[in-house]
Protein backbone atom coordinates (compact mmCIF):
# COMPACT_ATOMS: atom_id res chain seq x y z
CA UNK A 1 0.00 0.00 0.00
CA UNK A 2 1.58 3.27 -1.12
CA UNK A 3 -0.01 5.11 1.80
CA UNK A 4 2.46 3.66 4.23
CA UNK A 5 5.65 3.50 2.18
CA UNK A 6 8.89 4.22 3.96
CA UNK A 7 10.09 7.61 2.90
CA UNK A 8 13.57 8.28 1.66
CA UNK A 9 16.14 10.15 3.67
CA UNK A 10 18.27 12.84 2.16
CA UNK A 11 21.68 13.33 3.61
CA UNK A 12 22.35 17.00 4.14
CA UNK A 13 25.67 18.46 5.11
CA UNK A 14 25.74 21.79 6.90
CA UNK A 15 25.17 24.54 4.39
CA UNK A 16 25.04 28.23 4.97
CA UNK A 17 26.17 30.08 1.83
CA UNK A 18 23.63 30.95 -0.85
CA UNK A 19 24.16 29.09 -4.14
CA UNK A 20 26.67 30.75 -6.44
CA UNK A 21 25.50 31.48 -9.95
CA UNK A 22 28.13 30.62 -12.52
CA UNK A 23 28.30 31.09 -16.26
CA UNK A 24 28.58 27.68 -17.94
CA UNK A 25 30.76 26.74 -20.93
CA UNK A 26 28.18 27.78 -23.56
CA UNK A 27 27.29 30.97 -21.74
CA UNK A 28 24.35 29.19 -20.14
CA UNK A 29 23.72 29.92 -16.44
CA UNK A 30 24.79 27.21 -14.07
CA UNK A 31 24.52 26.98 -10.33
CA UNK A 32 26.48 24.72 -8.09
CA UNK A 33 24.58 22.72 -5.48
CA UNK A 34 25.59 23.95 -2.03
CA UNK A 35 25.41 20.37 -0.76
CA UNK A 36 27.04 18.13 -3.40
CA UNK A 37 28.76 20.90 -5.41
CA UNK A 38 27.52 19.47 -8.72
CA UNK A 39 26.83 22.05 -11.40
CA UNK A 40 23.20 22.26 -12.44
CA UNK A 41 21.76 24.08 -15.41
CA UNK A 42 19.52 26.85 -14.10
CA UNK A 43 16.68 25.80 -16.34
CA UNK A 44 16.77 22.30 -14.85
CA UNK A 45 16.97 23.70 -11.36
CA UNK A 46 13.92 25.88 -11.86
CA UNK A 47 12.00 22.99 -13.39
CA UNK A 48 12.89 20.94 -10.30
CA UNK A 49 11.67 23.71 -7.94
CA UNK A 50 15.28 24.38 -6.95
CA UNK A 51 15.87 20.87 -5.72
CA UNK A 52 19.19 19.31 -6.74
CA UNK A 53 18.58 16.29 -8.97
CA UNK A 54 21.92 14.78 -7.93
CA UNK A 55 21.53 14.74 -4.15
CA UNK A 56 17.92 15.90 -3.53
CA UNK A 57 19.14 18.94 -1.60
CA UNK A 58 16.33 21.49 -1.24
CA UNK A 59 17.71 24.99 -1.80
CA UNK A 60 16.11 27.79 0.17
CA UNK A 61 13.39 29.73 -1.62
CA UNK A 62 12.59 33.40 -1.37
CA UNK A 63 9.03 34.26 -0.35
CA UNK A 64 8.18 35.04 -3.99
CA UNK A 65 9.63 31.77 -5.24
CA UNK A 66 7.74 29.91 -2.54
CA UNK A 67 4.47 31.56 -3.50
CA UNK A 68 5.13 30.64 -7.16
CA UNK A 69 5.75 27.04 -6.22
CA UNK A 70 2.72 26.68 -3.93
CA UNK A 71 -0.07 28.97 -5.04
CA UNK A 72 -2.25 28.75 -8.18
CA UNK A 73 -0.67 30.88 -10.91
CA UNK A 74 -1.33 34.56 -10.35
CA UNK A 75 -3.69 33.89 -7.45
CA UNK A 76 -1.94 35.65 -4.59
CA UNK A 77 -3.11 38.95 -3.11
CA UNK A 78 -0.73 40.46 -0.56
CA UNK A 79 -2.33 41.92 2.58
CA UNK A 80 -1.15 43.79 5.65
CA UNK A 81 2.03 44.78 3.84
CA UNK A 82 1.52 48.39 4.89
CA UNK A 83 2.70 47.42 8.39
CA UNK A 84 6.21 48.76 8.48
CA UNK A 85 9.15 48.19 10.79
CA UNK A 86 10.15 50.58 13.53
CA UNK A 87 13.08 50.56 15.91
CA UNK A 88 11.20 50.25 19.21
CA UNK A 89 14.30 50.20 21.43
CA UNK A 90 16.29 52.67 19.37
CA UNK A 91 18.80 49.84 19.00
CA UNK A 92 22.14 51.08 17.62
CA UNK A 93 22.61 50.38 13.90
CA UNK A 94 19.18 48.78 13.47
CA UNK A 95 17.46 51.81 11.96
CA UNK A 96 19.78 51.65 8.92
CA UNK A 97 18.43 48.22 7.98
CA UNK A 98 14.86 49.48 7.95
CA UNK A 99 14.75 51.39 4.70
CA UNK A 100 14.28 50.37 1.08
CA UNK A 101 12.16 47.77 -0.69
CA UNK A 102 13.42 44.76 1.24
CA UNK A 103 12.39 46.32 4.54
CA UNK A 104 8.90 47.03 3.22
CA UNK A 105 8.49 43.31 2.58
CA UNK A 106 10.24 42.57 5.87
CA UNK A 107 10.66 38.95 6.97
CA UNK A 108 7.21 37.77 5.94
CA UNK A 109 4.79 38.20 3.06
CA UNK A 110 1.16 37.77 4.10
CA UNK A 111 -2.02 37.67 2.08
CA UNK A 112 -4.64 35.45 0.53
CA UNK A 113 -3.77 32.91 -2.12
CA UNK A 114 -5.62 30.15 -3.91
CA UNK A 115 -4.55 26.54 -3.62
CA UNK A 116 -6.35 24.37 -6.12
CA UNK A 117 -8.95 27.12 -6.29
CA UNK A 118 -9.44 27.25 -2.50
CA UNK A 119 -8.93 30.60 -0.84
CA UNK A 120 -6.29 30.34 1.88
CA UNK A 121 -4.96 32.98 4.24
CA UNK A 122 -1.21 32.67 4.30
CA UNK A 123 2.13 33.95 5.46
CA UNK A 124 5.43 33.11 3.82
CA UNK A 125 8.60 34.02 5.63
CA UNK A 126 11.53 35.68 3.89
CA UNK A 127 14.76 34.26 5.25
CA UNK A 128 16.72 36.72 3.13
CA UNK A 129 15.60 39.65 5.27
CA UNK A 130 17.56 39.60 8.53
CA UNK A 131 17.51 35.82 8.68
CA UNK A 132 13.72 35.74 8.65
CA UNK A 133 13.80 36.98 12.21
CA UNK A 134 10.51 37.71 13.96
CA UNK A 135 10.06 41.25 15.15
CA UNK A 136 6.95 43.33 15.60
CA UNK A 137 6.16 43.42 11.86
CA UNK A 138 6.20 39.64 11.50
CA UNK A 139 4.19 39.26 14.71
CA UNK A 140 1.58 41.79 13.66
CA UNK A 141 1.20 40.44 10.10
CA UNK A 142 0.85 36.88 11.40
CA UNK A 143 -1.75 37.96 13.97
CA UNK A 144 -3.74 39.89 11.36
CA UNK A 145 -3.63 36.96 8.96
CA UNK A 146 -5.17 34.68 11.59
CA UNK A 147 -7.76 37.30 12.49
CA UNK A 148 -8.68 37.82 8.84
CA UNK A 149 -8.94 34.07 8.30
CA UNK A 150 -11.17 33.72 11.36
CA UNK A 151 -13.45 36.46 10.11
CA UNK A 152 -13.73 34.93 6.62
CA UNK A 153 -13.59 31.34 7.86
CA UNK A 154 -10.56 30.57 5.67
CA UNK A 155 -7.92 27.92 6.28
CA UNK A 156 -4.45 29.19 7.16
CA UNK A 157 -1.05 28.21 5.79
CA UNK A 158 2.15 29.49 7.37
CA UNK A 159 5.47 28.80 5.65
CA UNK A 160 8.30 29.40 8.09
CA UNK A 161 11.99 30.00 7.54
CA UNK A 162 13.47 31.97 10.38
CA UNK A 163 16.39 32.21 12.75
CA UNK A 164 14.04 33.15 15.60
CA UNK A 165 13.27 36.35 17.45
CA UNK A 166 14.84 39.59 16.22
CA UNK A 167 17.45 40.58 18.77
CA UNK A 168 17.43 44.24 17.78
CA UNK A 169 13.82 44.57 18.90
CA UNK A 170 14.66 43.05 22.28
CA UNK A 171 11.74 42.27 24.54
CA UNK A 172 9.27 43.41 21.87
CA UNK A 173 10.37 40.57 19.60
CA UNK A 174 10.04 38.10 22.47
CA UNK A 175 6.48 39.27 23.00
CA UNK A 176 5.65 38.44 19.36
CA UNK A 177 5.91 34.78 20.37
CA UNK A 178 3.05 35.34 22.80
CA UNK A 179 1.15 37.43 20.27
CA UNK A 180 1.30 34.91 17.43
CA UNK A 181 0.50 31.97 19.74
CA UNK A 182 -2.50 33.85 21.12
CA UNK A 183 -3.54 34.53 17.51
CA UNK A 184 -3.60 30.80 16.84
CA UNK A 185 -5.66 30.29 20.01
CA UNK A 186 -8.07 32.99 18.85
CA UNK A 187 -8.38 31.39 15.42
CA UNK A 188 -9.10 28.00 16.97
CA UNK A 189 -11.83 29.56 19.10
CA UNK A 190 -13.38 31.56 16.28
CA UNK A 191 -13.76 29.03 13.48
CA UNK A 192 -13.45 25.39 12.64
CA UNK A 193 -10.93 25.59 9.84
CA UNK A 194 -7.49 24.01 9.73
CA UNK A 195 -4.15 25.71 10.23
CA UNK A 196 -1.28 24.01 8.42
CA UNK A 197 2.28 24.93 9.20
CA UNK A 198 4.99 24.18 6.63
CA UNK A 199 8.38 24.32 8.30
CA UNK A 200 11.22 25.03 5.88
CA UNK A 201 14.95 25.32 6.18
CA UNK A 202 15.77 26.72 8.68
CA UNK A 203 13.14 27.25 11.36
CA UNK A 204 14.59 27.81 14.80
CA UNK A 205 14.26 29.77 18.04
CA UNK A 206 11.25 31.88 18.85
CA UNK A 207 9.52 31.17 15.56
CA UNK A 208 9.57 27.41 16.14
CA UNK A 209 8.63 27.95 19.79
CA UNK A 210 5.47 29.81 18.81
CA UNK A 211 3.16 29.75 15.79
CA UNK A 212 5.29 27.42 13.63
CA UNK A 213 4.73 24.48 15.99
CA UNK A 214 1.02 25.15 16.53
CA UNK A 215 -0.52 23.95 13.27
CA UNK A 216 -3.23 21.30 13.23
CA UNK A 217 -1.00 19.65 10.69
CA UNK A 218 2.76 20.14 10.75
CA UNK A 219 4.70 19.51 7.55
CA UNK A 220 8.48 19.64 7.33
CA UNK A 221 10.17 20.11 4.00
CA UNK A 222 12.79 17.43 3.25
CA UNK A 223 16.06 18.10 5.01
CA UNK A 224 14.90 21.29 6.74
CA UNK A 225 16.68 22.23 9.95
CA UNK A 226 14.00 22.64 12.61
CA UNK A 227 14.64 23.22 16.30
CA UNK A 228 14.60 25.47 19.29
CA UNK A 229 18.28 26.09 19.89
CA UNK A 230 20.59 26.38 16.88
CA UNK A 231 23.08 23.53 16.35
CA UNK A 232 26.07 25.71 17.22
CA UNK A 233 24.58 26.75 20.56
CA UNK A 234 23.85 23.12 21.40
CA UNK A 235 27.37 22.02 20.47
CA UNK A 236 28.81 24.72 22.70
CA UNK A 237 26.51 23.67 25.55
CA UNK A 238 27.13 19.94 25.45
CA UNK A 239 30.72 20.24 24.13
CA UNK A 240 30.35 17.52 21.54
CA UNK A 241 29.55 17.21 17.86
CA UNK A 242 25.92 16.62 17.02
CA UNK A 243 25.03 13.38 15.26
CA UNK A 244 24.33 13.54 11.50
CA UNK A 245 20.72 14.36 10.75
CA UNK A 246 20.10 15.93 14.17
CA UNK A 247 17.29 18.53 14.06
CA UNK A 248 16.49 17.71 10.44
CA UNK A 249 12.83 17.36 9.49
CA UNK A 250 13.22 13.55 9.31
CA UNK A 251 14.55 13.54 12.89
CA UNK A 252 11.53 15.50 14.13
CA UNK A 253 9.18 13.14 12.31
CA UNK A 254 10.82 10.20 14.03
CA UNK A 255 10.45 11.88 17.44
CA UNK A 256 6.80 12.67 16.90
CA UNK A 257 6.99 16.41 16.31
CA UNK A 258 5.94 16.54 12.65
CA UNK A 259 3.04 14.88 10.87
CA UNK A 260 5.00 14.39 7.68
CA UNK A 261 8.14 15.25 5.78
CA UNK A 262 7.63 15.99 2.11
CA UNK A 263 9.87 16.64 -0.86
CA UNK A 264 9.10 20.03 -2.34
CA UNK A 265 7.19 18.72 -5.34
CA UNK A 266 4.70 16.95 -3.06
CA UNK A 267 3.92 19.91 -0.82
CA UNK A 268 1.35 21.66 -3.02
CA UNK A 269 -0.72 18.56 -3.88
CA UNK A 270 -0.67 17.52 -0.21
CA UNK A 271 -1.82 20.95 0.95
CA UNK A 272 -4.64 20.86 -1.58
CA UNK A 273 -5.66 17.46 -0.25
CA UNK A 274 -5.66 18.63 3.36
CA UNK A 275 -7.53 21.86 2.70
CA UNK A 276 -10.14 20.13 0.57
CA UNK A 277 -10.66 17.35 3.14
CA UNK A 278 -10.88 19.58 6.24
Amino acid sequence: MAWFKKHQYTIIKNVSKPPAIQAGPEGAKWESCPNCKELILQETLIKNLRVCHHCAYHMRLSADERIQVLVDAGAFEPMFMDIRPANPLGFPGYGDKLSGDASAREAIVTGVGKLGGMETAMGVMEFGFMGGSMGTVVGERVARTFEYAAEKSLPVLMVTSSGGARMQEGIFSLMQMAKTSAAVAGYRRACRRPYVSLLCDPTTGGTTASFAMLGDVLIGESGALIGFAGPRVIEQTIRQKLPAGFQRAEFLLEHGFLDMVLPRKDVRPTLIKIFSWL
Partner: peptide, 10 residues
Protein backbone atom coordinates in the same frame (compact mmCIF):
# COMPACT_ATOMS: atom_id res chain seq x y z
CA UNK B 1 11.57 22.07 23.44
CA UNK B 2 10.03 24.41 20.87
CA UNK B 3 6.71 22.56 20.88
CA UNK B 4 6.53 22.56 24.68
CA UNK B 5 7.07 26.32 24.90
CA UNK B 6 4.74 27.08 21.97
CA UNK B 7 1.99 25.02 23.59
CA UNK B 8 2.35 26.89 26.88
CA UNK B 9 2.10 30.23 25.09
CA UNK B 10 -1.05 29.10 23.30
Amino acid sequence: QAEAIARNLL
